[in-house]
């Protein structure tokens, strides 16, 4: 896998570039670091390590597994049974069979339970560990939406309810640091340390961010799905860990995807 070797070499370049930048003046350093990350992304464009996850995910999608010995090929991700192309761009959405608005992660779990006979706890076990089955499946599904515009449906009453709730949750402050999502993500051109922060109240920023998920994270050596991203944001806010697939996490995604509507997916992205 030569692309993987290139990825490791590029990691060294990035590390060196970041080390050098620390001794430079503030603005120069920021520009420099941003340039290096851009260059690093370009180098990896024809070989994002996330491709390994995509391949694993496709194999998991097609393989007969679980107590029922079935594949996921009949799974309905919202565009009809077995239709993967473009599905991620229109998730989360309401599903009549479960009576819930579901994101890619929770929908895949529903299919693993209904089609393959897995217990829910089994399907979600270690979902957050690098290389997990869910990480791979989400990467595969999202990659099949590359180039598709984000367009989440909000016409069903349940979708509309979660859209409204997601907007409220974005601003919900609590905890020992008084944080909400809006603390870091409601102003243009802001950074934590040197990390650029998207302003999700600004549609251009929201689009630019949402089209890059799920993303291979160099610092984590893993693909992070949107649930992984959001649950880690909640951890950084010093809140307890929200349940995987919970309505709160789905509602935030409905709102974020809605803010990023029209952006053409580039999944999988690559990030620091």
């Amino acid at each position: 896998m030569t692309w993987r070797m290139r990825g490791l070499a590029a990691g060294g370049v990035l590390a060196a570039a970041v080390t050098v930048s620390v001794v430079a003046a503030a603005t120069e350093a920021e520009d420099h670091a941003a340039d290096e990350i851009r260059r690093y992304r370009q180098m990896l464009e024809d070989g994002n390590p996330a491709e390994l996850m995509e391949m694993k995910g496709e194999a998991l999608w097609r393989e007969a597994r679980g107590p029922k010995g079935a594949s996921l090929e009949a799974c309905d991700l919202g565009l009809g049974p077995g239709v993967v192309a473009g599905a991620y761009a229109q998730l989360p959405r309401f599903f009549a069979d479960t009576g819930r608005v579901q994101d890619t992660e929770s929908r895949l779990v529903s299919c693993m339970v209904a089609l393959q006979g897995f217990a829910s706890a089994e399907a979600t076990r270690d979902w957050y560990r690098p290389g997990s089955d869910l990480e791979a499946l989400v990467t595969y599904v999202a990659t099949q939406s590359k180039g598709a515009p984000i367009r989440v449906p909000v016409s069903h009453p349940e979708e509309a309810r979660l859209l409204a709730a997601g907007g409220e949750l974005f601003f919900r402050r609590s905890g020992p640091l008084d944080f909400s999502c809006a603390t870091c993500h409601s102003q243009d051109q802001r950074r934590i340390r040197l990390q650029d922060l998207p302003n999700f109240l600004n549609p251009a920023d929201a689009r630019a961010s949402m089209v890059t998920w799920p993303a291979y994270r160099v610092s984590q050596s893993a693909v992070w799905t949107m649930e992984r991203r959001l649950i880690d944001c909640v951890r950084q806010m010093r809140w307890p860990e929200p349940a995987f697939g919970s309505e709160a996490i789905v509602a935030l995604q409905v709102w974020l995807q809605h803010q990023g509507e029209g952006g053409e997916l580039q999944s999988p992205g690559i990030k620091r």
Partner: peptide, 22 residues
């Protein structure tokens, strides 16, 4: 609207975590 959703998401939080963080 959101508080019921928040309660569901953090159903496993301890009473102390609720008090201090949520």
């Amino acid at each position: 609207l959101t508080e019921a959703i928040v309660r569901e998401a953090f159903a496993t939080a301890t009473p102390e975590e609720w008090r201090d963080r949520l």
